[in-house]
Every structure is written in C-alpha cells, then in structure tokens.
Write a protein that binds this DNA or RNA. Sequence first.
DNA 1: ACGGTCACGACAGCAACTGACATCGTATTG
DNA 2: CAATACGATGTCAGTTGCTGTCGTGACCGT
Lengths: 185, 185
Amino acid sequence: MSRWEPDAPGRLQLAAFELYTERGYDQTTVAEIAARAGLTERTFFRHFADKREVLFNGGDRFRATIVDHVLAVPASATTLEVVTAGIQAAGSVFPDRDTIRRRQALLHANPELQERELSKLATLATSISQALRDRGSPATTADLAAETGVAVMRIALTRWIEDPTERPWRTHVNTTMAELRQLTA
Amino acid sequence: MSRWEPDAPGRLQLAAFELYTERGYDQTTVAEIAARAGLTERTFFRHFADKREVLFNGGDRFRATIVDHVLAVPASATTLEVVTAGIQAAGSVFPDRDTIRRRQALLHANPELQERELSKLATLATSISQALRDRGSPATTADLAAETGVAVMRIALTRWIEDPTERPWRTHVNTTMAELRQLTA
DNA sequence: ACGGTCACGACAGCAACTGACATCGTATTG
DNA sequence: CAATACGATGTCAGTTGCTGTCGTGACCGT
C-alpha cells in the first residue's frame, strides 16, 4: 500500500475543471481544488505554476504535434501549405467536440483564462515560426506565416465548434484558408 | 487651494513606469508606486484595475484611431486595403521610437505583461472586425482580415523599432503587407 | 539494514486585490 | 449665505494567490 493515491496532477486537473464549471473560476479557491483532489494547496502549486495553468496541460503535446507535422512536409510545398498541414494535424489531438466546447465556454467567461490562452497561442506561433525556419524559410516569412496560421486555426476552431452539421476539422481549416487566399487576392 | 495634487492617474502611471524599469516589474510593489506618486495603495486600485493595467492606458485612443480610419476609407477599397489604412493610421498616435522601445523591452521581460498586451491586441482585433462589419464585410471575412491585420501590425512594429535606418512606420507596414500577399500567392 | 530520494503536509509570510467606512474640500441647492 | 450632497482620497481589515522552509514517511538501491 503506497503512501499516496496515484496521479496527483490528474486529480487536481479534474477537480479544477469541475469546480471551475460548477461555481465559476473566481468563486473557486485553490484550497478547494486541492481539497477535492485529496491534497493540500501547497501541493497544487508544486504541480501547476498558477491557478490558470491547470487548464492548459495538453499544450505541449499539441504544439509538438503541429511542429512535427510542419517538419515532415516535403520541401516542395509552399510555406502556407506547410502551415496548413500543421494545423490540419492539430485535429488529431483534439478531444471530442463537447469537451472542447465546455473548455472554450470556460475560457470565454473568464478574462484571466483568455489571457493565458492567448499567451499559449503566441508561443505556439513562435514554435511554428521556428520550425519553418528550420525548414529553410526566411525569418520574416516564417513569422508572418506562423501568425496568420494561428489566426486561421483560431477562427477555424470557432467554426468547427459551432458547426451544427458537424463537418470535420479538415473542412473548416480548408474553408478558412481559402478565405485567407481570397482576402489577399 | 485644492485638497489634492492634480492628475493622480498620470502620476501613478509615471511612477509605475519608472519603478518597473528601475527595479523590474516583480520587484515593485503597488504600495511603492503609490508612495512615489504621493498616494495610497487603495487609490491605485481605484484608477487601475490591476498592477499591469497601469501600463496600458493609451489603448482606448489607439483603438479608436484605427477604427475611425477603418470606417473612413472609401467603400471602393478592398477589405485588406481598409485594414491596411487603419494600421497606417496607428502610426500617428505612436510616441517616439525610444519610448516604445523601452515599453516593449519592459513587456518582453515580463510574461504577465506580455499576456496583457496580447489581450489588448485581441480586443483590438475584435474592434477592427466590428468596424469592418459595419462597413458591410461579412463576419467571417471581417474576423480573418482583422486577425491577420493585427498580426501584420505586430510584425511591422518589431521591424520599425529595430530598423537601424529608421524608415517610417508606413514603410514597414507596406513591406509586411506585401509579404503577406506574396505568402498567399 | 541503512542512507538517500521523492512526494507530500504543515506552517509562516508577502503582496495583490476588495469592501466598508471616515474625511474634507468643493459644487449645488434652497 | 447656510445647509447639503458629492467626489476623490485615506484608513483598516480581510481574502486569496503564491512562495520559502522544514518535517515526515514510504520507496529504492546498495
């Protein structure tokens, strides 16, 4: 019999998500999250840097997936095609629509959480830009392509979530990219 | 003789900017800022929502300038031209290069401040998108154009700041926009 | 068996932020 | 002109996010 129950971070994540949705983010204290997970407040901060970070855990895997796919595209592709491929790949790590919907609703209701989300997307853009440079793109092009790519991803995500006909991720990415091309034509 | 020295918010802003640059953001307490401004901590929070907000005061005017110019462009222009015009106009409310450089250095050194900056840029994008819709653009196009426009602005700003030959704002906006067009060609 | 490590608890403390109430020049009103 | 309302600030107490420090006990390798 081990001294502690396993997977403390996972329990904390679950407890936090539940409490944030039940009572709201501001109305939840870290002590309450820890209590529900059977832990102490101090332990929460050993696993997560702050009260928001507990909601952004898959971020690293998400970023890695996109970067990997960006690096895997044949050299013959255009920069924008490369970015598109990376964003397409992001769909493979999405959980089901409803989980994302609930998550987005949470973020939408709390400015602090939105800020953190934007911050994560910004570092994602930086990673994509770096990957593009590793492929040989000039720095300026890489930055611009990464930023617009993330913008496209955000918009496509909103549409994907709200689409009543539940068309696949791929479709919404392509549609949004097509609009981007038309915009600059 | 009035009861208090005038322009409490201005004094707080100045004190905050000085202390943030002198000692660093984390090493500065709100009580210290208030003390330098000849006020109390409580009064600081009456003028600014939090410790970061004191650095983002011109934001409303900035946004208003861009939106006004977006709305003023003749209807014959393309969506991207409209956005470009708005971003060009942003240059008129910039202070001198060195002030912005110091400001950007401050933001760059503090993740919390970066998050707030991203948040401000996101609401800027929302405002631009709304202005585009008011001009008659479809919602989807407006969102995309606004997001990419802000991305272009960010990149152009970095280049403008770092440009050793000190070419004008307009030049960097045009250059970056041209790259965007080339990217999607 | 023994020492080290690792994950956690316990406790103290700082600083960001908030609510309630007091203060007193200044504008307003009768 | 006097009474009164108002508006910006001070004062104080309290909550909460977050950190440093130290202790504890199960596990692991030697």
